[in-house]
Design a protein around this nucleic acid. Structure first.
Length: 302
DNA sequence: AATGAGGGCAACCGCTCCATT
DNA sequence: GAATGGAGCGGTTGCCCTCAT
């Protein structure tokens, strides 16, 4: 190969390299990463540039430590998605998969281990990830403050994309993807709209964890747009859940629209809804479909 | 003050998937 | 249908920093 004659740099990025990449991305936007590396005058492989951009240089990144609420969201999403860091990251605006992965492997894993050993769980002999999963789903990891999960989640999405949200028109809102967390909810649900956003108002439950949001109003915001854009591309098949939840979202939004900006409905399961959309449910190996069937039981049409 | 252990984070590696030829 | 290359993802490594001794 010709390219091997040129020595690629490895290791930490210098500020100069960062500048070069940043300037190039700002002026030219995303393209073929190996071209970017070459054209930006970087002695890096495209892969390395991509990683640096996604994990560090991207302007929409949220820096700093994870909040306790973010922690809980991560724990919860991990219990649903497993080690699908990119999918978890897609639901935590401003956070990268690498960041979440590191956070999990260092902080959370350790904490869960502690919890597990304290509770002298019989799962301790299992492989770490699977035992953690069980622990979480089984309740060893406290859901005591589950309301924070949703509240924080909403807060995070609202914060990170408040400007874009305000700029979104209704059709954009309708086209947006509804996060998985919403799809995991069931219970009494009331949907309304104000001038800038659509809000849910209701009572939710996630896997037995009562979120107790009866008095809270929160906005539906899309999956982190920037993530979708930056990661390119895979938005459409980011995962099938997004499509599914998007369908749900659209249905709800349509109802909103048709009911003069307010919807009082949805008291029983989404089950029929799922079945109706069954043909589109080509769920990946992690059996999201079953998951959803178990956790979603209200029907928007009743 | 020196030093060793542990933790956190950035980056690399290897694999898979997908599009193109 | 096979080969190839690019992109993305998850696992792993290695460096640096902090803190306890």
């Amino acid at each position: 190969m010709i390219t091997t004659t040129m020595k690629m740099r490895k290791g930490l990025w210098s500020p100069e390299e960062d500048d070069k990449l940043m300037n190039y991305m700002v002026t030219n936007g995303q393209g073929c990463w190996s071209d970017i590396a070459r054209n930006a005058g970087l002695q890096r492989c495209g892969k390395s540039c991509r990683l640096r951009w996604i994990n560090y240089l991207r302007p929409d990144l949220k820096r700093g430590a994870f909040s306790p609420q973010e922690e809980e969201v991560i724990i919860h999403l991990h219990s649903l998605l497993g080690n699908r860091w990119s999918q978890i990251a897609a639901r935590l605006p401003g956070r990268t998969d690498n960041e979440i992965k590191n956070f999990w492997n260092s902080t959370v894993k350790k904490r869960l281990k502690k919890t597990t050993s304290n509770s002298s769980s019989p799962n301790t002999s299992h492989d770490s990830s699977s035992s953690e999963h069980k622990d979480i789903m089984g309740g060893s990891v406290s859901m005591h403050d589950s309301s924070n999960i949703m509240a924080m989640y909403m807060d995070a999405t609202r914060r990170s994309s408040s400007s874009s949200l305000q700029a979104m028109n209704i059709s954009q809102v309708m086209e947006s993807n509804m996060p998985i967390l919403h799809a995991s909810c069931y219970g009494t649900l009331e949907v309304g709209m104000d001038s800038n956003a659509i809000s849910y108002h209701g009572c939710y439950e996630i896997f037995g964890g009562n979120l107790g949001l009866e008095d809270e109003i929160f906005n539906i915001t899309p999956l982190d747009n920037s993530t979708s854009i930056d990661h390119g591309i895979k938005t459409e098949n980011l995962d099938q859940n997004s499509i599914v939840t998007n369908n749900m979202n659209n249905m709800i939004m349509n109802q909103c629209y048709n009911n003069n900006n307010t919807l009082h409905a949805i008291n029983e399961g989404f089950e029929n809804c799922w079945e109706g959309a069954g043909d589109e449910l080509k769920v990946e190996e992690w059996d999201f479909e079953e998951l959803m069937r178990e956790s979603c039981t209200f029907d928007p049409y009743t």
